[in-house]
């Protein structure tokens, strides 16, 4: 889902930088207010955690592998605003230091993964786990549903960004300048693979990690959800 440089035109890149700027400012203010001084390194540690999750290959039926984004997991464990910053930092490190994901597309990538996926996932988890105890099975199911739905909504948002490129940027003779596929191709292609494969990877990983923490460190689930 990481959009590299060259896929999106200047309008889309500019708009999503402009959209993300106030979100980053609000997130910083909220996190500064709620995070205790001794928890400052937690943001960096959470960002590194988010980065490493994206590196882990999860086995899928048929012998292949896929990877989770981990944004919903970060949101459940840290709360949505801190997760927004953590995933943003992970994406910036990926783009700047490892050349994975574009510099011009950082705004768009952060909108999809650090905003849409984080907030949709967090609130779905809160709705489905409402009133349940820390060790309740409902929390595991809620985490799975939130992971699956949030990743697919983020994938839809990415597909729309790709799909509008031929509408926004085309030469007079019909030649596309950026991503050459319209909405009729981009949406089914992106959603198909996420609905069938990557969504399930995200759901299974998110649910199993919550199950693990319920057994091994339930206090961490109580801290983050607030």
């Amino acid at each position: 889902m990481h959009i590299p440089d060259g896929y999106l035109g200047p309008t889309t890149c500019g708009v999503f930088y402009a959209v993300m700027l106030p979100i980053w400012v609000i997130a910083s203010k909220i996190v500064k207010k709620t995070l205790k001084a001794r928890q400052v390194p937690l943001l960096a540690i959470a960002a590194a955690f988010s980065f490493v999750i994206m590196m882990l290959n999860v086995p899928i039926p048929g012998g292949s592998t896929g990877h989770a984004v981990g944004a919903v997991l970060a949101a459940i464990l840290l709360g949505p605003w801190a997760a927004c910053i953590a995933v943003t930092v992970a994406l910036v490190v990926q783009a700047l230091l490892f050349g994975d994901g574009g510099i011009t597309a950082i705004g768009a990538n952060c909108f999809n993964m650090a905003f849409v996926e984080v907030f949709v996932g967090y609130y779905l988890y809160r709705i489905f786990s409402y009133g349940s105890g820390v060790s309740s099975n409902r929390r595991v199911i809620a985490a799975g549903i939130a992971g699956y739905a949030a990743l697919n909504i983020a994938a839809l948002s990415t597909a729309v960004m790709f799909g509008i490129q031929p509408l926004l940027h085309k030469t007079a003779n019909g030649q596309a300048l950026y991503c050459p596929y319209g909405l009729n191709v981009a949406i089914p292609a992106m959603l198909g693979e996420h609905l069938l494969v990557f969504g399930w990877v995200e759901a299974v990983v998110t649910a199993l990690v919550i199950k693990y923490l319920q057994k091994q460190a339930p206090e961490l689930l109580e801290e983050g959800g607030r």
Binding site: I45, I53, V204, Y212, L213
Partner: peptide
């Protein structure tokens, strides 16, 4: 390992990593 067991191991690894990371925070501060 069969893929089902493989998924469990990845998830336990992530869970365990978060547990260690969280406790590391205090030492780092």
């Amino acid at each position: 390992l069969p893929h089902k067991k493989g998924r469990y191991i990845v998830a336990w690894n992530i869970g365990s990593l978060w547990q260690r990371s969280y406790y590391l925070n205090h030492a780092v501060y």
